[in-house]
C-alpha cells in the first residue's frame, strides 16, 4: 500500500471515527461507526487480506451494527434522551487512551525491528491460509473465543428468561 492510498483512506477514516463520538444523534453515530468499519475493510483489501475484509463487513458492518441500529430504533433514542456522562469517565478515557497509544507505540517499535525484507507468502490472506492458521497455530485462542461467545449467548438467554 503506497503513501497516497494510505492517507487517502486514513484521513477520512479518522474524521469519520471522530464523528462517531462527536455526533449528537445516536442513529448517525451508529452509521458513522458502520462507515468506519467499512473503510477498515477497504484497508484490509488493500493489504491483500480479502478474507478478513469480507468477515469485517459480514460480521461487524452487516450484523452487529444492524443490531445496534435495531436497539436504537426500538428504544427510539433521541439526542435529548441521552444520559449525561458519568463523572470521572473523561479521566478514565484519557488514561485508557494513553495506555492504548503506549501499547501501539511498543508494538510498532517491535514490529519495525522484526520486519525484514520478507515478501508475503503466495496464498496470503486467502481462505485456505487463514483457516489453516486458525486451526493449527492459533487453535487455543480460537477455541477460547468460541467458548467466550457461547458463555455470552447462555448469559443472554438466562437474562432474558429472568
Amino acid at each position: 500500500m503506497d503513501f497516497v492510498t494510505f492517507f487517502a483512506l486514513a484521513i477520512p477514516l479518522v474524521v469519520i471515527a471522530i464523528m462517531v463520538i462527536a455526533h449528537p444523534s445516536p442513529v448517525y453515530s451508529a452509521l458513522f461507526l458502520v462507515l468506519t468499519l467499512f473503510l477498515l475493510a477497504v484497508y484490509f483489501l488493500f493489504l491483500d487480506a480479502h478474507m478478513v475484509a469480507a468477515l469485517q463487513i459480514i460480521v461487524y458492518a452487516g450484523a452487529i451494527m444492524v443490531l445496534f441500529l435495531f436497539v436504537i430504533m426500538l428504544l427510539n433514542l433521541q439526542s435529548d434522551t441521552q444520559p449525561t456522562p458519568r463523572r470521572g469517565l473523561g479521566r478514565a478515557a484519557i488514561i485508557g487512551g494513553v495506555i492504548l497509544v503506549a501499547e501501539l507505540g511498543l508494538l510498532l517499535q517491535r514490529s519495525s525491528s522484526e520486519r525484514a525484507e520478507s515478501s508475503l507468502p503466495e496464498n496470503f490472506g486467502t481462505v485456505e491460509a487463514l483457516g489453516s492458521q486458525l486451526f493449527t497455530t492459533y487453535l487455543l485462542p480460537f477455541e477460547i473465543t468460541g467458548i467466550l461467545l457461547l458463555v455470552a449467548v447462555v448469559g443472554a438467554v438466562v437474562l432474558a428468561k429472568r
Binding site: L31, V34, H50, M51, A54, L55, I57, I58, A61, G62, A63, V66, L69, F70, M73, T126, V127
Partner: peptide
C-alpha cells in the same frame, strides 16, 4: 477467492436500506 462470502457481505449491507 472469497466468492460466496462477498455475496453474503453485500446482501448483509443492503439491510441498511430497509432499516434506514
Amino acid at each position: 477467492n472469497i466468492g460466496i462470502l462477498y455475496v453474503l457481505a453485500m446482501v448483509s449491507l443492503s439491510v441498511y436500506g430497509v432499516v434506514l
